[in-house]
Simulated scan of single mutants.
Amino acid sequence: MADARSHVLAGTRGALHVHAWPHPRPRYAALLAHGYGEHAGRYAGVAGVLGAHGAVVYAPDHAGHGRSAGERVVIEDFEDVVSDLHAVAGLVRAAHPGLPLVLVGHSMGGLVAARYAQRHGDGLTALVLSGPVVGAWELPGRLLALDEIPDTPVSPAALSRDPAVGAAYAADPLVWHGPMKRPTLQAFARTLATVAAGGDVGALPVLWLHGADDRLVPLAGSRVGVERLTGTGGDLTERVYPGARHEVFEETTRAEVFADLTGFLDRVLAR
């Protein structure tokens, strides 16, 4: 796959840095939404798999993350992040009119992707949620009840059983290694409630990927949100990986995860 290119868009909170992995003859486009405290550059492996599968791939650094503008890891309103993602989708459609569009969201990006599907689902061909922050996620309420947010960063060991993944995360200068911030926690709590009340995504095909040993976003809490999002008659494909931690795309079983991802997309794109 070709090296990533960069675009800069005017986001809702300032300059939005967008990674783009081109493809000479794409059969679909993929839009990636990364997780809390990280950046889209960590998804080069995912982009490579999707590129080999026929996708042109775009992924913004969300506001306050990576190379995008904003105070580090401060998101005051996730609706703005959804709007930023929609602006990137507009960039994709301008460059590749008529291509099916697949949205992939991991962790916090899963919350953004779920809300995006509620607002703009008619423009999507499929939705992929990896360890998504939807449903019953207790962390924001627990931290907001404290007078002071503890300086407890994400543990690299919680990401994957592959120690190289944690080591790279710990050494990455674009990853936030400090405490969570109160405005972001408040925004998480509000948006979890908004997505819960926002209705299902109808017949949109959804692939849900989750590590059974995910301690950052526990499986049981996400299940509540995913099942509500897909509804009783929805098109949901579920894959839970025994022993896997939070980042299933970076797990020791990543080959199985990517096979499940591309197999799902083959089924959806063949319709």
Rank of each mutant, 00 (worst) to 15 (best):
M1R: 13
M1K: 09
A4L: 12
A4P: 12
S6K: 15
H7W: 13
L9T: 05
G11V: 01
T12N: 15
R13L: 13
G14A: 03
G14I: 12
A15P: 09
L16S: 07
W21T: 03
W21F: 06
W21E: 00
W21I: 04
P22E: 02
P24H: 15
P24D: 12
R25I: 10
P26C: 01
Y28C: 05
Y28T: 05
H34K: 07
G37A: 13
A40H: 04
R42G: 03
A44Q: 04
V46F: 07
G51E: 02
G54V: 11
G54M: 06
A55F: 15
P60D: 13
P60V: 09
D61Q: 05
G66E: 10
R67C: 06
V73E: 02
V74D: 01
F78T: 11
S83R: 13
H86L: 14
V88T: 04
H96K: 11
P97G: 11
H106V: 08
S107D: 03
M108Q: 02
G109H: 06
G109S: 09
V112H: 06
A114H: 04
A114W: 02
R115Y: 10
A117T: 00
Q118F: 04
G123E: 07
G123L: 00
L124V: 09
T125V: 15
L127K: 01
S130N: 08
G135F: 03
E138I: 13
L139D: 06
G141S: 14
A145F: 08
P150D: 12
P150C: 09
P153D: 04
A158M: 15
A158W: 15
L159H: 04
R161Q: 11
A164G: 14
G166M: 03
A167L: 11
A170H: 07
P173F: 13
W176T: 09
H177N: 04
G178I: 03
M180K: 13
M180R: 12
P183H: 03
A187D: 00
F188C: 02
F188E: 00
R190M: 06
T191L: 11
T191P: 00
T194D: 07
V195P: 00
V201M: 07
G202F: 03
A203L: 10
L204Y: 03
L204D: 00
P205H: 06
L207S: 03
H210L: 03
A212E: 13
L219D: 01
V224A: 13
R228V: 05
L229S: 02
T230G: 03
G231E: 03
T232L: 11
D235W: 10
T237H: 09
P242I: 12
R245T: 04
H246W: 09
E247W: 07
V248A: 06
F249K: 08
T252V: 12
T253V: 14
T253I: 15
A255I: 00
F258P: 09
F258M: 14
D260L: 08
L261M: 05
T262H: 07
F264R: 05
R267T: 14
V268L: 06
V268H: 09
